[in-house]
Design a protein around this nucleic acid. Structure first.
Length: 258
DNA sequence: ATGTCAGGCCTCGCCTGA
């Protein structure tokens, strides 16, 4: 079973790239972030034509998350992170597919930091930590994946010294990520490639992709029983080199059958 | 400070978020 996450940065603007990649990569399940489309503008028929069933939570202009499945229809569990009824951003969608709970998340960017956006990011992260604990306690096979907007360590950023004050790398955010991991989640990419430089995002500016000036901010967190099934993981880096592409590349894992 | 995108409204050019 192959599961992927991809911050598409506009699902309609990115549709040809998304469909081309789906056909090439053939993932069974896909979590998408940054749809940048209202609920009614989600390109369902194109995605169905590519062979996928989908649930999504759109929003005008910003945010937006979706879960695609080649087999069973994703069975929606929730479409918001618990803990703040005032939070209207569409940044979290959770579904069950094939007995696996899949949380698709788009953690706030948080820049500029400090400031209200950074406070929102930390608050959102706190709610994710609380929910993560509940998920592990529930004891089902679970995957929390998406755009975390955090480089967990210096290994995950091309020039760490330049990012120290950035909302994606500040100590508060790295420590929040560590707090989540320490509950018992496995960072799939880092487990399989402990020493390699692996990026999932390259800025549109300054020829970042050409210079491989990247960041690792899209992550797969696995509960212990999913961790035991982990067979392979990777980044489809070449997709970042396509025309009219997202600033993120798709990230994927492969699981052994039970 | 710069740079490049996407989406949307202030709507064919500028703003914001990233």
């Amino acid at each position: 079973m192959k599961i992927a996450t991809y911050n598409v940065n506009g699902v309609n603007g990115r549709l040809p790239v998304l469909i081309k990649w789906l056909n090439e990569a053939q993932p069974d399940v896909v979590c998408l972030q940054e749809l940048k489309a209202p609920q009614e503008k989600f390109p369902l028929s194109a995605i169905e034509d590519a062979g996928y069933k989908a649930i999504w939570h759109g929003q005008k202009s910003w945010n937006g998350v979706a879960i695609l499945s080649r087999g069973d229809q994703p069975e929606e569990v929730r479409r918001a992170l618990p803990g703040d009824p005032e939070d209207v951003h569409s940044r979290y969608l959770e579904a069950e597919i094939n007995g696996i709970t899949i949380g698709c998340l788009y953690l706030p960017n948080g820049n500029p930091a400090p400031g209200p956006k950074f406070d929102y990011k930390l608050g959102w992260f706190d709610r994710l930590i609380t929910h993560g604990k509940q998920l592990l306690k529930a004891g089902k096979p679970t995957i929390l994946t998406g755009d975390y907007n955090v480089m967990p360590t210096e290994q995950d950023v091309y020039k760490p010294e330049r990012w120290l004050d950035d909302a994606l790398f500040r100590p508060e955010v790295r420590s929040a990520f560590k707090k989540l991991i320490d509950q018992g989640w496995t960072d799939a990419i880092r487990k399989l490639y402990p020493d390699e430089t692996i990026y999932t995002f390259w800025d549109y500016f300054r020829n970042a992709y050409g210079r491989n000036a990247g960041l690792r901010i899209d992550h797969f967190l696995l509960s212990p029983d999913i961790d035991r099934r982990l067979k392979a993981a990777g980044v489809d880096k070449h997709v970042r080199g396509w025309e009219k592409t997202s600033d993120h590349a798709p990230v994927w894992i492969e699981l052994k059958e039970k």
